[in-house]
């Protein structure tokens, strides 16, 4: 695809905030907005994390990992 146009405003690549192109060099990301933006990019992974973890724990490999973790867990009474 060819590129031929730049908008007066463009989203910051780090935080997604709409920034005037002329102010991109002086723009400082708001940490909260940056976190929000990165979490949004990971939303599909976050949404499927619980299901993925449950499926893993139910698998043979997951059950073994749980058994191993249980075996290696320091004895709380020791």
């Amino acid at each position: 695809m060819s590129s031929f146009f730049t908008s007066q405003h463009m989203p910051c690549t780090e935080c997604g905030a709409s920034v005037r192109v002329s102010e991109h060099d002086t723009h400082t990301c708001d940490p909260e907005r940056r976190l929000e933006y990165h979490l949004f990019q990971l939303r599909d992974e976050v949404a499927t994390f619980d299901d993925g973890l449950s499926a893993y724990l139910a698998s043979a490999q997951g059950r073994f990992a749980q058994w191993l973790a249980e075996r290696d867990r320091p004895d709380a009474n020791r």
């Binding site: 060819s2 031929f4 146009f5 730049t6 908008s7 405003h9 463009m10 989203p11 709409s18």
Partner: peptide, 15 residues
């Protein structure tokens, strides 16, 4: 600015 909107959301590559 429909074109600007499309560029900003990445539907059209920016220069």
């Amino acid at each position: 600015d429909t074109l600007g909107m499309l560029v900003q959301v990445g539907a059209i590559p920016a220069a």
